[in-house]
Design a protein around this nucleic acid. Structure first.
Lengths: 420, 420
DNA sequence: CTGAAAGCGCTTACAG
DNA sequence: CTGAAAGCGCTTACAG
């Protein structure tokens, strides 16, 4: 019952340090919080064995509990305690019970570092991403770099949830954009984990190869190496379908591609497909150094403003390298009084959560973002388990999601009838 | 030079498993990736000492390098290696150089678990959040739970960046909404970390007290206990200023408060302030079980649809418990043909990154989200260092950000002149 | 300044 | 089924 609905909370006044005294006693309802068998075995959920030690905050200074304390308390050897804690079959019920009781009464939690050192498994994978650069534009509307990391955040969520199923946790780290020697940090992470998951642009391919020599490595939206596996969405199919839609359904005769980082494999692949697909239809493609948005809303807005300031005419459609860029494009166009999709059609890539809430809702290519993370973990896990990956490059299917920004009618309003 | 601009990448065809062979050799440019002194000392950045072992992926099966290998290679004791690696003052330059060279040549990375066990410091803090529930509405527009976690993601980013400055990494975990016994998972995390940071509604206060008995605990947007410190934004000041603005600047005579989780301290505090402030002005407040949005866009949309379906008249303004809720409210109103702020004024709370990009841009209370995370880490770090926290409740200042959704004119279009 | 050795808290053959 | 003991790879008094 350590449920969040327990109504034993009190709202404090701001800055107030008083608090409801009912919070203080280690009440019965919370007994299972720390004493429940962490391995899912049948621990005594009965609050009777309430931990006497936790009654006072006093044991803070005391030496932390070890497996020896538990063994002594239960009258068994540390080997037996370890076996019970690890769910081995051997200890007979009676021994098991005594151990479990002792663990519950003492509130024992095994030390992860000791377990890791002994078992040679940390049950931790490190995830590293590069923090997006703030656009060069000093624009308060776009000042928050966090907004450009929605894609990474959702992938990481997929990784974390999947890892959790196998008892693994995620050690999260980031590399600053202008950190040109991330090696030491990443080496440190390698020492703290069983495997590493690198987002795009964290390490060069050669850096990845060296890292992979020490620990299994999987990359996301990157490039496979002889020693690492890469996971990506299907850029080719996704962008081809999107461009085809713009041309066939909306008669676009000129399409600009607003790229991401010039060295991003995803962006390069998407750009190429735009060119190829348009060429098949004889449609004009606009791209180049003026059309570079660094995957950020600020970058997208900057491109639009620069173009309009220069008096450049807008193409029929702008295909953005990702949704964040489209977000900035939409904002800048609106700011200058242009209508989307009336004056120009806009599309994104990724289908991050907000894409559907924009005005107009964003037509984009939906990547299975959380699945990318899940898949990345699965592959990494198998490598940690000693398996040799069958493929070095895994591509997940994507799908065009047609909404309003490409010129398609926004979906009709459904009628909801609902009773509370 | 392990920079992402190194142009030695090749874009693959989808599903293709070939790759540019230039990726294969462990080229000189990447030498410093793993061999650089991880403690910032003067390691030989010179690529001359390129690691011969990493030339082949063959050493995969070999026993991992230990400090003994380095010591032997350098002709010193393991104690000296350790001292150099930890930046102690003692080893004289010559010894230091020999160690550093051996470390670089072998590509040695110390094992984190062994370090942690020996030094009693893992340099890891665990962060746990509760994954937001999907609204009960089976609505494809709002199906992605990730969209409701933007606030948590940004806080975590603040934590991670701040932790990084002290050499700490972040162990990220989440508790499923309907996990009623998160104890075992959280105990496991406690064993893997030096301290814990809990987001709202992860543990009951009594659960927190028990946990705090084993490891330092800081909560975010929660409730302080005798054993843990809580960090929050200034709900009182923020909501008071916001409601005052709606009343004084926009003559609102009826204001609804669309709450978050009913047991969320933040939501309860905000609701109370809405009531108190409105009462001072004699303004009518609408709230109650029909006005509960669980902090999610889906929840906000559901509330609006239910009300409109029931023929309920809209109040002058709806103050949402957070921005996510406002996002759903905006969408649902637009869906039904209502104008914001014309028909009803809408406000949020948090100022998550997308708030400024909505149409109309969302008037809200800006919390220093990343700072909340930074502060949380700082407090936790001091507790890990053995300091007794001076305050149990820390409140960070917030600020009303007036945009279009409250009825204020959207800011005038600035004129940008920019040269590429 | 440097090294031999103890010890951190677990897991797991190895005996019994 | 159970226990004594070795060992995981580091750090750090303790001597020299």
């Amino acid at each position: 019952m350590p449920d969040d609905t327990t109504p034993d909370r009190t709202v404090l006044s701001t800055g107030d340090t008083t608090f409801d005294s009912s919070l203080l006693p280690a009440d019965a309802a919370a007994t299972d919080v720390l004493t429940a068998d962490r391995f899912g075995s049948a621990a005594p959920a009965d609050p009777l064995g309430a931990d006497p030690l936790s009654q006072g905050a006093g044991r803070k200074g005391a030496a932390p509990l070890t497996i020896y304390d538990v063994a002594r308390h239960a009258g068994v050897s540390i080997a037996s305690v370890s076996r019970v804690l690890n769910g081995h079959a051997t200890p007979r019920p009676e021994t098991r019970d005594r151990v479990l009781r002792a663990v519950a009464e003492l509130g024992f939690v095994p030390d992860g570092a000791a377990r890791a050192l002994s078992s040679r498994l940390k049950e931790i994978i490190a995830v590293v991403y590069r923090r997006a650069p703030l656009g060069p534009v000093d624009d308060p509307v776009f000042e928050d770099e966090s907004e450009n990391l929605a894609f990474v955040d959702v992938i990481n969520r997929g990784v974390q949830i999947t890892a959790q199923h196998r008892g693994f946790d995620l050690l999260l780290s980031s590399v600053d954009v202008d950190d040109h020697a991330p090696g030491p940090r990443i080496a440190n992470l390698a020492g703290k984990s069983d495997g590493m998951l690198l987002h795009d642009r964290v390490l060069t391919p050669s850096g990845i190869v060296r890292l992979a020599d020490r620990v299994p490595v999987v990359t996301l939206a990157g490039t496979p190496t002889r020693a690492s596996v890469n996971i990506s969405g299907d850029n080719i199919r996704g962008m081809r379908d999107l461009i085809t839609h713009l041309i066939e359904a909306h008669d676009c005769a000129s399409i600009a591609f607003l790229s991401g980082h010039i060295d991003s494999p995803d962006s390069v692949a998407r750009a190429r497909v735009v060119r190829e697909t348009a060429a098949e239809y004889g449609v004009r493609v606009i791209t180049g150094p003026h059309w570079t948005g660094e995957y950020s809303a600020a970058g997208g807005a900057r491109v639009i403003r620069t173009l309009l300031d220069a008096g450049t005419a807008l193409p029929d459609a702008i295909a953005c390298a990702n949704d964040q860029t489209a977000l900035g494009v939409l904002y800048a166009l609106h700011e200058r009084g242009y209508q989307v999709p009336g004056d120009v059609k806009i599309t994104g890539f990724d289908d991050i959560p907000v894409a559907r809430h924009l005005m107009p809702p964003l037509t984009t290519v939906r990547q299975p973002i959380q699945d990318l993370g899940a898949m990345a973990f699965d592959v990494l896990y198998s490598m940690i388990s000693g398996e040799r990956p069958a493929e070095r490059q895994l591509v997940l299917p994507v799908q065009v999601v047609v909404r309003g920004s490409c010129g398609c009618p926004t979906e009709p309003l459904p009628s909801y009838t609902r009773t509370a």
